[in-house]
């Protein structure tokens, strides 16, 4: 990871490709959360990584995820501001209120959940997706995937344990000192 950060900071193209592959999921979740199902999502995700490359010399940390989150969120808000300005009449205050209503904590939570989901083994991730997003029952998932119900239950239980461990820092009352706060992330160069 340290080597990836160093190579990304140097603008190494292989490192840029690896960073995009590794973080495109969480970045897409952030952009989509701010912009909704807009045609601008693809542009927002692309611009996030281009801006990250442009400012990679200034990156000082060892974890790219919160830095990319801040760039993704800021880029999305800029796109949203541009898109809304004509319809709101150019009143900046109204635009800011509308954008902030998106919810800082919720966008950050979505980002962290997506990171945790992307870390799951593919088989477990499929079960979680079919269960939570599609809304299938365990027997329905078993039929859909062509596996035993018991296997679905095992994968679900293991996936939930991994997710719970990865998301513990987001629970109410959790010690968040190890997690960059939204505000400090926003203030990074």
């Amino acid at each position: 990871m340290d080597d990836l950060v160093a190579r990304f900071r140097q603008g190494d193209e292989t490192a840029i490709r690896e960073v995009i592959t590794r973080y495109s999921g969480p970045v897409t979740t952030v952009v989509r959360s701010v912009l909704g199902s807009s045609d601008l999502v693809a542009d927002g995700v692309q611009q996030t990584f281009v801006k990250a490359w442009r400012s990679s010399q200034q990156f000082q940390g060892d974890d790219l995820a919160p830095w990319l989150y801040a760039i993704a969120r800021r880029t999305s808000i800029d796109l949203l501001r541009h898109e809304r300005r004509p319809t709101i009449g150019g009143h900046e205050a109204d635009v800011e209120i509308a954008i902030e209503a998106t919810g800082l904590d919720e966008v950050w939570q979505r980002h962290e959940i997506r990171r945790a989901l992307d870390e799951l083994p593919e088989a477990e991730r499929d079960v979680v997706r079919l269960s939570h997003l599609v809304g299938l029952t365990h027997p329905q998932i078993a039929e859909h995937l062509g596996i035993a119900v018991g296997t679905v239950k095992s994968r679900s239980a293991r996936a939930h344990k991994r997710l719970a461990a990865a998301l513990r820092h987001l629970e109410p009352g959790a010690n968040r000192t190890d997690v960059p706060s939204v505000m400090s992330v926003e203030e990074r160069p």
């Binding site: 592959t21 495109s24 970045v27």
Partner: peptide, 24 residues
């Protein structure tokens, strides 16, 4: 219980949004 607490976000399409094709 922890996962259930994030149930609404896990059920949201934005959480699972696919990255744009040809992004890299």
């Amino acid at each position: 219980a922890t996962v259930a607490g994030f149930g609404a976000l896990l059920a949201d399409e934005a959480t699972w949004a696919e990255a744009p094709t040809d992004l890299v």
